[in-house]
C-alpha cells in the first residue's frame, strides 16, 4: 500500500473500458456470466447486477480500507460482496421472479466472479472511495459491453432475433439458424473470436504495459 497519486478519472474510465478491459486484458470473470449470454435480455440484467455490485463493493472496500486488518481482508471483501449480491438477489426475486429463475444460480455466483476480487485487491484497497467507485463501475461496464456483444451475436445467429424481436435478414428463410450458437460451445467460440479480434487491434495500437488484476 504505497502512497501513489490518484489516477485522473478519464484514465480510470478508459482503462476500465478498453486498455485494461477485464475480459481481454486480464481474462477475469468469464466463468459466471458466459452461461447467460445466449439471450440478450438475461445478459443485460446480469451485467447491470454485476456492474452495480462491483461499483458498490469497490466503494465500500475503499471506505473501510483503513480499518480492515490486512490479514483478513479477503474475508472482509468477500462478505461485502456477498452483502450486495444478496440485495440484488432479493430484489430480483421480489420484482422479477421469472428472470430470477432464468438466471438460476448465476446471480449468486457474482460473489466468486474474479473481477470483483481483482478490482478490490488491485485498486480499491489502496485508493479513495470516489475513484474506486468509478473504477469498479467502468470495469463492470467494459465487461458488460463485451458480454452484450457476445450475447447479440449468439442470439442473432442462433435464433434470428434481437431482444426477442425478429431481425430482417437473420430470421428470414435464407438464413439457416446456427443452433450451435445458443448451445454452450457457441459461447466458447464467440468469446474466443472476440478476444482474437481485440488482441489483434491491440498489437497494432501498441498499448503501453498496464498492470492487470492478476
Amino acid at each position: 500500500m504505497s502512497p501513489q497519486p490518484v489516477k485522473p478519472a478519464g484514465a480510470i474510465i478508459m482503462d476500465g473500458l478498453w486498455y485494461d478491459n477485464p475480459i481481454f486484458r486480464q481474462i477475469l470473470g468469464i466463468c459466471s456470466t458466459l452461461a447467460v449470454t445466449n439471450v440478450i435480455l438475461n445478459t443485460a440484467v446480469m451485467c447491470i447486477s454485476l456492474t452495480l455490485v462491483t461499483a458498490l463493493s469497490c466503494w465500500t472496500v475503499s471506505i473501510l480500507r483503513d480499518w480492515t486488518p490486512r490479514n483478513i481482508r479477503m474475508m472482509v471483501q468477500t462478505l461485502i460482496m456477498a452483502f450486495y449480491v444478496i440485495i440484488v438477489d432479493i430484489l430480483l426475486k421480489a420484482y422479477w421472479p421469472e428472470m430470477s429463475r432464468n438466471l438460476g444460480p448465476y446471480v449468486g455466483l457474482i460473489i466468486t466472479n474474479c473481477i470483483l476480487m481483482g478490482r478490490c485487491e488491485a485498486f480499491a484497497i489502496s485508493n479513495p472511495p470516489g475513484p474506486s467507485f468509478l473504477d469498479g463501475f467502468f470495469n463492470g461496464l467494459g465487461y458488460s459491453s463485451i458480454l452484450l456483444a457476445i450475447a447479440a451475436t449468439r442470439e442473432m445467429t442462433g435464433m434470428g432475433t434481437f431482444l426477442g424481436w425478429p431481425v430482417p435478414f437473420f430470421s428470414g428463410p435464407y438464413w439457416d439458424k446456427w443452433v450451435i450458437m445458443v448451445m454452450p460451445p457457441g459461447a466458447f467460440f464467440t468469446l474466443a473470436c472476440m478476444i482474437w479480434l481485440c488482441r489483434s487491434i491491440w498489437t497494432k495500437e501498441k498499448v503501453p504495459a498496464q498492470t492487470g488484476g492478476k
Binding site: I27, I180, M183, P184, P185, G186, A187, F188, F189, L191, A192, I195, W196, L197, C198, R199, S200, W202, T203
Partner: peptide, 18 residues
Amino acid sequence: RGLRGPGITLIIAGMMAL
C-alpha cells in the same frame, strides 16, 4: 498471434464442449 494463450484455449474448450 492474437489467438495465443486464452484465445486458443477457448476454441479448444468449445470443441470439447461440442
